[in-house]
Design a protein around this nucleic acid. Structure first.
Lengths: 189, 189
DNA sequence: CTAAAACGTAGACTTTTATCATCGTTCACG
DNA sequence: CGTGAACGATGATAAAAGTCTACGTTTTAG
């Protein structure tokens, strides 16, 4: 399974990477059960996770204790609260496995050491950041410029597999609408 | 005015930076008039801007050709469409000066050369990315978890100067609500 | 300086979204 | 297995947000 991570990195940096085995050793394999939490708000985010298999939800609670999903991350991607991870400050977010997951986790100490000593790993970090940022930018633009119905259509076009793979409740919370509304609008397509 | 940029960098990296003068030379001073565009959707974003003075709006158009503001960036911060800038692909965003601005612009060629050859500048780039990303994460969480009224209160608390400094129209578009709604809700506080 | 344009507020009204309750269905777990 | 909890759909209703018009004020540009 670690080969999924190896492949991910070589795909991005080419296969002439020194220290790749050393990098891979810093990652701990972790299995997360469905609904298991990897991070709770108030705790410091101690790891960056690479998802080899499964799906993670990053969410916050609104004033009425409903979940609002900032991001849904699937296999072959990275997931963390990078802000808390980088600063050591308590996180305001929660991360939960919405499917049984196979993950690789790297802690802050190893992560920082590698970004400082292994230039290739530093590039990986920048790519994680850039990809996360790109994703965020698109998401903000959809949230501020589209209606609920348009956001549903957007998801169908750009991340169609999510809609069949995940519960309606989760999709609705990702789109920033209520599950009842999602159910009705979806029926009208 | 270039000293604002010099100060910004030394504040973050300490003042023992080699090549700082070389770095600063790569930045072109630019004055932008109120309402002048620095980027139009469809064009490639050629520069990263440092704002020494003034305020920039990053926005997209929705289906009805209304502006939806992804971000508002003020002095002592960086602004760009990093996705288009990094990839060279056409941007889907627009950037406009909402006040007369004094900017420092660095183009892609110089930027990439510096990230590769000057480790200190690479750190600056990572900090720009991290700050932009952190900002985006907060923004997504407010957009998915707060009502219009709550978002107004949020802005009053965390970016109060924006509310007095900018037009209601712009603030409303930043909050993802219509100007009429913003006007009414504001009156009810 | 002045006319035109843009802006901010307000009222009336429509549409969209949220809330609440209900009811089969599905799913998880003992 | 069976049973209790979670889920998804739907109707009725309430609340929130959007739309349109109007009007006085401010800003802009010639």
């Amino acid at each position: 399974m670690i080969n999924v991570l190896r492949q991910h990195i070589t795909n991005r940096l080419g296969d002439d990477i020194q220290n790749l085995d050393q990098v891979l050793l810093a990652f701990k394999p972790i299995k997360a059960k469905r609904n298991e939490h990897l991070l709770r708000q108030g705790d410091t985010c101690k790891y960056v996770y690479f998802i080899a298999k499964g799906c993670l939800q990053v969410y916050v609670y609104d004033n009425d204790f409903n979940e609002s999903t900032r991001d849904i991350v699937t296999e072959d991607n990275w997931c963390s609260d990078l802000l808390s991870f980088g600063s050591g400050n308590p996180s305001s977010e929660n991360i939960r496995a919405v499917e049984p997951c196979e993950l690789f986790a790297v802690d802050r100490e190893n992560f920082q050491k590698m970004t400082e000593t292994i230039p290739q790993f530093d590039k990986v970090y920048k790519q994680i950041l850039e990809a996360s940022y790109a994703n965020s930018v698109y998401r903000i633009n959809t949230l501020v410029s589209l209606t609920a119905l348009e956001r549903i259509k957007w998801l169908m076009e750009y991340r169609p597999t999510l809609m069949t793979r995940l519960s309606s409740k989760l999709i609705a919370s990702y789109l920033g609408i209520h599950k009842d509304v999602y159910s009705r609008l979806k029926a009208k397509l």
